[in-house]
Design a protein around this nucleic acid. Structure first.
Lengths: 194, 194
DNA sequence: GGCAGCATGTAACGTGTTACATGATTTC
DNA sequence: GAAATCATGTAACACGTTACATGCTGCC
């Protein structure tokens, strides 16, 4: 069954959650809110959004009302359907796969900011998963010693070598501290929600 | 001249910098070091690395020696050429374009950890650009009030609405604090290099 | 005997970006 | 009068991921 297609892109679910938050929204306005508000974590082009809305419509997860306007393109205002709510909930409660990269962490926090409509228990479970994963990651990193990196530049000229290591050691400190801050942040957030 | 190709992908320059750090390295080992050491910021598949090395060879920026082995694929050990050093330096000193997304910030820090071979002044200039950009971003964010977000969920049911806002306010605090930490971090790093 | 790692690659596919196409309204 | 914003979309291209292809070595 070579090359099977999943058809479940992340963008589709992000749009679905945003349409749920704010019914009767156009594709154009969805891009604005994405680029403004989730802007730190995520951004999308209109050329991605329009086909995504088409896919969601074909799957029956959203529907739109057409606002006819003269000498301008018609407005399409989208709202979520019952099936869409089920699909959104099932996406939100699907267990998150942690991978220990900053990119993956961004996805975790992006999903977190879309979780307001989920059940309380689902949200708390999601946060608990995050606390477990990020504190584990922090503990692993705390044991790390940059030995691989030191060896990697062993043959390089001493001035360059020392500059590489200075930057890397600083970066290492920052990542460790940031991970620790994120864990504490998740714990505070959990307290404020429960 | 519709659809012009640049041919200057970031991966090519990352590989170029790594080969410069550690001469006589194979494609396979390049992936290992990328996934281990730059792993937080960046990762690459072998199926991207092999074509990238081919491109670099064709442009004369790297060359390889063939280590013949029986009943196993031959090893290709890459090293940087004089032209490669020029290309790497010119990439490293090209002014960084800031965009105020976490993704863009990752690129900034990735380039920073590859800068050990650059001139001292170039490295300090790069750090200064970062300090200016991130503190500006921090100041902009400090003035932000989540008004757009509050309005966006005005129509949603009150329980969901309050959960969205709680998460978003926490996230906002974290981002502001993190930006501030990064600026202080860059200032400390600058002090330790100069 | 199976699975992970070493070592090279190509082909297909999915996702994201830039360019093209159209055209009115508002702001500088 | 030029540029940005509103509003929809398609086409081409660049980049990233998964699958395919091959085959030896070392470990459990």
């Amino acid at each position: 069954m070579a090359h099977q297609t999943t058809g479940t892109s992340e963008l589709d679910y992000i749009l679905l959650c945003l349409i749920r938050m704010h019914p009767d929204i156009s594709g154009y306005d969805l891009r604005s809110i994405i680029n403004k508000s989730t802007g730190f974590f995520f951004h999308a082009h209109l050329s991605q959004i329009y086909p995504a809305l088409k896919r969601l419509s074909e799957r029956g997860l959203v529907e739109h009302t057409l606002v006819k306007r003269e000498s301008q393109p018609n407005l399409k205002l989208y709202r979520i359907t019952e099936d869409g709510i089920d699909a959104a909930n099932s996406w939100l409660t699907q267990p998150f796969v942690f991978e220990y990269t900053t990119e993956n962490a961004q996805h975790y926090f992006l999903k977190l900011i879309l979780m307001g409509h989920a059940e309380s228990e689902a949200l708390l479970a999601y946060i608990d998963q995050g606390i477990a994963a990020f504190s584990h990651q922090r503990d692993l990193l705390a044991e790390y010693d940059l030995q691989t990196e030191r060896e990697f530049v062993e043959g390089a000229d001493p001035i360059a070598r020392s500059r590489y290591l200075t930057v890397w050691e600083h970066e290492y400190d920052f990542m460790l501290r940031e991970l620790n801050e994120r864990v504490k942040w998740l714990e505070r957030l959990r307290g404020d929600i429960a």
